[in-house]
């Protein structure tokens, strides 16, 4: 009896078409100067907000005055939980605000690369009620440059985040804050 693996692979071999070449990946001209303004516009369209580091404390105080649990890996914003001591991701269920680092941003679509290293605990950027990403790697024009500059397998988990969580599953009405964060702030340093 062949295993399922052998069976499937044998069928693929018997049925696959003649070889078709893998295309070369071209490079596209991007206007690098426009990257930051473009990113700001696109992420704004997805309800993310770009601000300066000096405005971040005020932004948090004004928008989330009732926030109690703050997780932060950024010295400018002191957190009040010790992420290194978290044993079970369930302990993060009550996080109101997470301020984490993001590696770099992508101008064309507002995406920000965050790996397990920056997230500390994988679920943190998702379970928090509000998220702020502090980016020190600048902006690249498109996903082509983005994937060129990272090793997606460097850590066990990595994610492009392009806004607060959202849904339009009820009559296509946009609602921000589906299961993940209800807001996204972005700071470039």
């Amino acid at each position: 009896m062949p295993t399922a693996k052998e069976h499937i692979l044998a069928r693929v071999r018997a049925n696959k078409p003649a070889d078709r070449p893998l295309p070369d990946m071209p490079t596209y001209d991007a206007e690098v100067d426009l990257d930051l303004p473009l990113f700001t516009e696109v992420i704004g369209g997805s309800k993310g907000k770009v601000m300066a580091m000096e405005d971040l404390p005020g932004y948090l105080a004004t928008n989330f005055p009732d926030a109690k649990v703050i997780a932060s890996t950024v010295p400018e914003i002191p957190g009040n939980i010790d992420l290194a001591a978290v044993k079970d991701p369930l302990e993060l269920a009550l996080v109101d605000i997470a301020v984490l680092r993001g590696r770099f941003a992508v101008a064309e679509n507002g995406a920000i690369w965050v790996t397990e290293k920056e997230a500390v605990i994988r679920v943190l950027p998702f379970i928090t009620q509000h998220l702020v990403l502090v980016i020190d790697g600048g902006v690249v024009p498109t996903m082509h440059e983005a994937y060129k500059s990272i090793d997606i397998a460097e850590t066990g988990f990595g994610v492009f985040i392009a806004g607060p969580s959202k849904t339009a599953d009820i009559e296509q009405s946009l609602v921000i804050g589906a299961h993940g964060p209800r807001s996204l702030g972005v700071v470039f340093v």
């Binding site: 996903m143 983005a146 994937y147 997606i152 066990g156 492009f160 392009a162 806004g163 969580s165």
Partner: peptide
């Protein structure tokens, strides 16, 4: 991995007219 650039550029725009889905998650380990 570089081919993900092509497909992530195509998917969100074609699906719902958004520049990319909010989360594009890469699970390796």
């Amino acid at each position: 991995a570089e081919h993900l650039a092509v497909f992530t550029r195509l998917l969100g725009r074609s699906a719902t007219g958004q520049p990319i889905t909010i989360y594009t998650s890469h699970h390796h380990r």
